[in-house]
Design a binder for these strands. Structure first.
Length: 546
RNA sequence: GGCCUUGUGGUCAAGAGGUUAAGACGGCGCCCUCUCACGGCGCAAUCCCGGGUUCGAGUCCCGGCAAGGUCACCA
């Protein structure tokens, strides 16, 4: 077999350069010792999964913390999945969450191109070299033939795949190959695997620790019939020439690690370090499964934007899942920027965590409670502009009024900050009743109409907008007393049957009448914000409704 | 089914032969002179199972079991 001739026949590519050219073109990066070069290599499907953020954050932290480089490579080798504008989605959604690349697709850099489709020449050069060395060969098997083989293997409980005796095209003669090519039969290029599945090695994974890997014996496809490489081949070449030092990727890749090891080996490249991280899961009835793009809205990064989760909160939550000691650090250093946390690969969990929206909500509340009224105003307005209803956008017309509401709802100025807000959407919904078109009270009192009417009327008569909190509460008490309600909570608790109710019940009636809700922050302040006219009007409306 | 990985409260988890088995979220209860929220205090709840090794095992070994991943011209 004349391999040189075969290589020329299969990959006639004229502009393929000698291999040394590529080594010279993409030299070692010459970074400081310990600096890691990491990457995110998504497929441009137009959908950003929360898992993308998760793994991006890990890679980004490690690169930047070590003084290295974090880049974006687009794995667009699958024509069918490609979506227009997907790169823009990737870039913008990660940027929103504060993950920034140093180089890569749409940004440039010395190690590009960063789109795999634009790197065909490099892949061809190396595939051609493998053919020349007898380490790769063309395969003309059709889909049907491959399936027949697979069925035969499964029926006979044999290891499925294209290997050994099942690799029909492995032993094609030069004449047969030539005839097939001349006949125009489509072909792929396969690796002529030298591995033995019986041989096992221990491999050190940066997150999983010591693991056992078997040698690869599959004659995997390296170039598809359209001349585009498969993931495996592109991975080896790209991560070598982009000088990646550490590959952190999802654990679904663990089982193809043997292929990658053999590929790097046969190509003469140094293997990067690998860390396979677990995917975020969800409990669905009885089953635990990966967060699904189709079934779970929270799987999509856009979900968090639509709901108005603060990016810092989402990032913080990701970090708590990513590094087990992060949460403790955060508790001790609530004011410190997240970037100062010492991220370590070794602290990454070995088993997949369940996504916990309740925990995210708690983190969000805690974070939002650190914002000032102005910051909250800006955050809410920004969200409303993109995702809010027309009415919600209108909330920002009177900034002063909004600021007062936020100050109240966030407990600013009080001894303790409140934590009522989870995300922008929920926040605007909870304060909606402050605005004319958001106030739709459904009065639900615990007392009979006559009593309620009496109390409401008594309060309306006594109410003076100028009263301070003390004086105001004194009047609430007076109204309570006049109607036989307990004003001394201790006395009331000692014998609740002695009274129709207590001051707290009176306060509740007033609260429901003015806000439509039984739970709100301080009522006196609410009446101050609403203003005298609105307060009186709401009281009258409530009385009239009885 | 083969192979790989992983099994500590409901969830995230600390733990690397000797601990009353941390902490956080959630739940429950009490307290905080109007509700709620915040905060404080407290309670309940965990080492997958079975064998070994050892004076002693969540931790080491073996065997089960369970869950997840993977077996494409998808990444």
């Amino acid at each position: 077999m004349n391999y040189e001739k075969l290589a020329q026949l299969l990959i006639p590519d004229a502009d393929v350069k000698p291999l040394e050219y590529y080594e010279a073109q993409y030299p070692e990066r010459g970074l400081e010792k310990g600096a890691e070069v990491t990457r995110l290599a998504p497929s441009p499907t137009g959908f950003m999964h929360i898992g993308n953020l998760y793994v991006a954050l890990a890679n980004e932290r490690i690169a930047h913390q070590s003084g290295g480089v974090f880049y974006l490579r687009i794995e667009d080798t699958d024509e069918k999945r490609k979506v227009e504008g997907a790169v823009e989605v990737i870039l913008s959604s990660l940027k929103y969450f504060g993950v920034e690349f140093d180089e890569g697709a749409d940004m440039g850099g010395a190690y590009g191109p960063y789109y795999q489709r634009q790197r065909a020449e490099i892949y061809h050069a190396f595939a051609k070299d493998l053919i020349r060395r007898g380490l790769a060969y063309p395969c003309f098997c059709t889909e049907e033939e491959l399936e027949a083989t697979r069925n035969h293997q499964t029926e006979n409980k044999l290891l499925p795949g294209y290997y050994g005796e099942f690799a029909h095209c492995r032993s094609l003669t030069e004449e047969e190959i030539e005839a097939n090519v001349k006949a125009g039969k489509p072909y792929v290029i396969r690796l002529r695997s030298q591995g033995d599945v019986e041989k096992k090695h221990t491999f050190r994974d940066a997150v999983k620790g010591e693991i056992t890997v078997t040698e690869n014996n599959q004659d995997v496809v390296i170039l598809k019939s359209d001349g585009i490489p498969t993931y495996h081949f592109a991975h080896a070449i790209d991560d070598h020439f982009m000088r990646t030092t550490l590959v952190i990727r999802g654990e679904e890749w663990l089982s193809s690690l043997p292929i990658h090891i053999e590929l790097f080996n046969v190509l003469g490249f140094k293997l990067p370090r690998y860390g396979h991280n677990c995917s975020i899961q969800k409990i669905d009835g009885e089953v635990r499964r990966k967060l699904s793009k189709r079934k779970d809205p929270e799987a999509s990064l856009t979900f968090y934007r639509e709901q108005g989760y603060h990016k810092q909160a989402v990032k913080t939550y990701m970090l708590t899942l990513l590094n087990s000691n992060f949460e403790e650090w955060l508790l001790k250093n609530p004011e410190t920027p997240l970037e100062e946390f010492k991220y370590s690969i070794g602290k990454m969990g070995k088993s997949g965590a369940l996504f916990d929206i309740v925990k995210l909500n708690d983190i969000s509340k805690t974070y939002l409670a650190t914002l000032s009224a102005e910051e909250m105003y800006d955050f809410l307005q920004e969200w409303a502009n993109d995702y809010g209803t027309e009415a919600q956008k209108g909330y920002f017309a009177d900034k002063d009024y909004m600021l007062k509401i936020l100050t109240l709802y966030m407990g600013i100025g009080g001894k303790k900050r409140r934590k009522d807000f989870i995300c922008a959407k929920q926040a605007l919904e909870t304060i909606a009743w402050f605005f004319a078109d958001g106030f739709h009270p459904e009065y639900a009192y615990k007392f009979d109409n006559a009593t309620v009417k009496q109390i409401l009327s008594d309060f309306a008569a006594a109410y003076d907008f100028a009263d301070d909190n003390q004086a105001w509460f004194g009047k609430v008490k007076a109204v309570a007393e006049k109607n036989g309600f307990a004003t001394d909570m201790k006395a009331y608790k000692a014998d609740p049957t002695a009274f129709p109710g207590s001051v707290s019940d009176v306060a509740e009636l007033l609260r429901i009448a003015t806000t439509g809700l039984s739970n709100t922050p301080d009522l006196w302040t609410i009446m101050q914000i609403l203003g005298e006219a609105e307060t009186r009007a709401r009281l009258q409306t409530a009385i009239a409704a009885l």
